[in-house]
Design a protein around this nucleic acid. Sequence first.
RNA 1: AGCGAGGUAGAGCAGUUUGGAGUGCUCGUUGGGCUCAUAACCCAAAGGUCGUAAGUUCGAGUCUUACCCUCGCUACCA
Length: 554
Amino acid sequence: MAKKYLVTSALPYINNIPHLGNFIPLLRSDIYTRILKLQGENVLYICATDESGTRTEIEAEKKQMNEEQYCKIMHKKIKDILDWFNIEVDYFGRTSSESNHELTKEIFLDLHKQGYICEKEIALLYCPNCKRYLPDSYVEGTCPFCKQPGAKGDQCDSCSKFINPEELIDPKCKLCGEKPLIKKDRHLFLDLPKFSAKLQKYIEENKNFRGIEKNLPLAWIKDGLEPRCISRNLKWGVKIPLDGYEDKVFYVWFDAPIGYIAATKDYCDKNNLNYKDYWQNKDTDIIHFMGKDNVPFHTIIWPAELMSNKKWNLPSRIYSNEFLNYEKGKFSKSNNHGVFCDDVLKLKYNSDTWRFYLSSVLPEGKDSDFEWHEFMEKINNELIANYANFAYRIISIAKRFGQITALDETGLTKEEKEIAEKIKENIDNYFSQNIKGNLKESLRNALNIGSLGNQYFQKNKPWELIKDESKKTEANHVLWFSFCILLNTSVLLHPFIPTKTKESIKQIDLEFNPNNALKSKIPLMIKKNIVLTEAKPLFAKIQDDDIKELKKRF
RNA sequence: AGCGAGGUAGAGCAGUUUGGAGUGCUCGUUGGGCUCAUAACCCAAAGGUCGUAAGUUCGAGUCUUACCCUCGCUACCA
């Protein structure tokens, strides 16, 4: 069977409207997938909302809804954001789906059968007023070390020491203020130490794991893994199929990654495909995108779950990103700091403008910042100056010239052959950087071709050629080749700015198939006569005053 | 505190695997040229203690050690 790719992005949490930082893995996986598609690869892009957890129950209760109603509304909100940004996910599922419940139970029972699940009695905080078990962070009190109030059950914000919640002075339930009790209860644990050797082998042998994706899990393994609690005292979630656990559900991080499989299954069921061709067929590469905070889950817990049964494919590649901060601070809804995705939808810039800027500051090597000033500079000085202006200036001249007859590459000049060679180099590099997860570099390669186009155009002065009747053939030649460079730039930029590149290609009445445009011979040469349709500038420049206002507002 | 990642001109990066002159890229800044365009392009220039210190070496951005700073994780936030 032919090679396939299954790409996922870390599941957005149902209780949060993603901010631009949360949005990064979604954007990276979308671009990555689109680039693979340009190469003609068979790739499926899967995502879902992660709907489990204590917070879902609490948020639903606050809104006086049941969890199902609440999650449905939030799922739609998040899906609308993805659609607005043109995140072309093949299937956007939900971890509350029937398929996820079934698969989670199946994987759990496989683990249980093989002795990978153990039981322990643990002490938990319980609020008698809310009638609810409380995660440590839902309990507040005075720090036993620094005596400051407002310390959470797991860590003090003032002195940043770790706290055993039982030692917290004057503990209060964060929801109602009542003093929580300590109750003992039996819980299920994934016996991670039993996986140590297998996990170590898996990570060490996978040549694609580098940096944090490799060193972090190896460091954890070296220090000794501990069993991880996978059950919670909640009602909403996947019920545990084991006697004595009827009142509990699985921990979010147990069922969330299984959501990748479940969403694939739901997609396949609707499209007459078999999800096992992706998840149990060794010709498929499983590829995960996520923020760096998520690496332990995807490199330790998730592979361990998949090891419940020899047939599951383990992740082939893991791409984690650092964090995008906002104007040198953290994004925070409660502090009204930063732009959230629902804000973006209301502002006047189109999705490609946002996609371009975010692509150019992707935090791939280290944390980066969203800065309004830089937003304006990148759009005006790179996107517009390099690409949109190039498109517009060729079209302006071509309009005056008339129809452009297509030529073929046998008539290329030495200069043009050299440019074609450089374009090819950039395209090769564009693909190899993408596979390495350096999408910012791929973008750079696309823009390099735009620069080559501007240089060529400048040097050959078609605006002068068209004025001279005796140089019509030469003018046609230069304009045709300029359009060829533009086409290559548009195609390479398409994964980053899908709407406007399509528009640009349409302005010169060409066909474009994003699913295999670069599968055959590169660079692309235009083989039909060029007819200009109505051509407007692709992007509007961003004004300094607008930026100042936005900086104040967010 | 422990573990992991990062620290390279004003900004953002590459270069570190396998040591060879501060090498390169994008943007910005300054001066000049050119002008079809939301202007690009060409020429020239300014701008660096490669986080700090010590060490290995004929030679260190690259290797070793210690320290400083930023971020993440530390297992019941997700």
